[in-house]
Write a protein that binds this DNA or RNA. Structure first.
Length: 363
DNA sequence: GAGCCGTGGGA
DNA sequence: TTCCCAAGGCT
């Protein structure tokens, strides 16, 4: 493709100069802070993650502090942000850099990309912003902007389409400030070339935008058909003896890995209480113990990107400790320190007044 | 390469 | 209400 790259480069840099948001990590060339920011803002809007960023940097101001923390604490700080593998991988990588690489964060794209939790995009962002390496950081914004400017008709989900876009972005990077340019392209996508109803009339690139010329802005980037989300039914048993609650640390191979939740009976469809009491899990847990069903919550829908969880909480009071070792007994005061899925955190806040409210989801 | 992994805000 | 999707990466 024959492109006047200089025009796009200078236009985007000029636009960035006057329209860029003041974001904390933009004041820094510290690879650690850039790394944390880039990971937090993977698939996450600025408004949703900005307070998490501040709290994270305050608690872990450098990679050594992060490396010496516990996984539970890192996950607790991440609670509510979602995609918890990001937090687990941050912790794993921090320990690797701190204890195996003498605390020296790698300084080239290829070395950075070897770290767990860092892929093409994040490696390029860190390498270009912290180390001035001219590598294209292709995120969802860049895909959208380039797709529209040049009407890319290969889906960006394919390696071919991604490759085309990456190549174009690469050709636009100025040698002197690749970091600013990468951020300019992304910021342009976030603020000007928005997914829905972009204001093309005020766009400095409208006369160079092929999609605009063809009145097909809405067509790009090419949409991919999504498969239906899986529907699951969770029955949470909130087992309560007045002093402690039962919890279980979730294991790998499912959502919310390494977070904690209540004893869970997953059923193939909606079970009423009498049917739930007939399940082997219920019978095994309570056996012949005296129980009192204190409360059954309304049905709650928890929508994940790929699953729809239909769930209820069964608040069950017991008078005698259960004869079991499978679940953890957590005293009320300690419940707050456990990293839990947001739906559990909200329940605890509303029902037990343990922890913060939904809007204030941190310690 | 396709499926999996959260959550919240906006239209 | 419902749907979309946001500074992606791993298996």
């Amino acid at each position: 493709m024959d492109i006047d790259t200089k025009f796009y480069t200078s236009t985007l840099l000029n636009w960035y100069q006057t329209n860029r948001r003041d974001l904390p990590w933009r004041l820094s060339n510290n690879p650690y802070e850039i790394w944390i920011a880039e990971v937090i803002f993977q698939q996450t809007r600025i408004n949703q993650g900005i307070n998490y960023y501040h709290r994270f940097i305050e608690r872990f101001p450098n990679i050594s502090m992060l490396a010496n923390a516990s996984e539970d604490e890192v996950l607790k700080l991440w609670q509510g942000l979602g995609y918890y593998s990001r937090a687990r991988n941050l912790w794993v990588t921090a320990k690797k850099v701190a204890f195996e690489m003498q605390g020296q964060f790698p300084n080239t794209f290829s070395e950075i990309k070897k770290l767990k939790g860092i892929g093409d995009y994040t490696a390029a962002a860190i390498a270009s912003i912290a180390f001035n390496e001219p590598v294209p950081a292709v995120d969802g914004n860049v895909i959208r902007v380039i797709s529209r400017l040049f009407t890319i008709d290969t889906p960006a989900s394919s390696s071919k389409g991604k490759g085309e876009i990456t190549q174009i972005a690469h050709s636009m990077i100025p040698a002197d400030n690749p970091g600013d340019f990468n951020q300019a392209l992304m910021e342009f996508g976030a603020l000007q070339c928005t997914p829905r109803s972009p204001n093309c009339e005020i766009c400095p690139l409208k006369n160079s935008c092929l999609a605009f010329k063809l009145s097909s802005i809405e067509k790009y980037p090419l949409k991919i058909i999504k498969k239906a989300v899986r529907i699951r039914h969770f029955n949470y048993l909130v087992v309560d003896d007045g002093e402690y609650l039962l919890f279980k640390k979730r294991t790998s191979g499912d959502i919310w890995e390494n977070l904690y939740d209540f004893p869970l009976i997953e059923t193939p469809d909606r079970y009423e209480i009498d049917k739930l009491m007939q399940t082997p899990q219920w019978k095994k847990l309570f056996n012949t113990s005296d129980i009192c069903l204190e409360n059954v919550s309304e049905e709650i829908i928890h929508q994940l990107s790929h699953q729809k969880i239909i769930l209820r909480f069964y608040h069950i009071k017991i008078t005698q400790p259960l004869e079991q070792t499978y679940y953890l007994s957590i005293v009320y005061n300690h419940v707050l320190s456990l990293p839990v899925p947001i739906i559990i955190g909200n329940y605890l806040a509303n029902k037990f007044e343990i922890g913060a409210t939904k809007k204030d989801n941190w310690i």
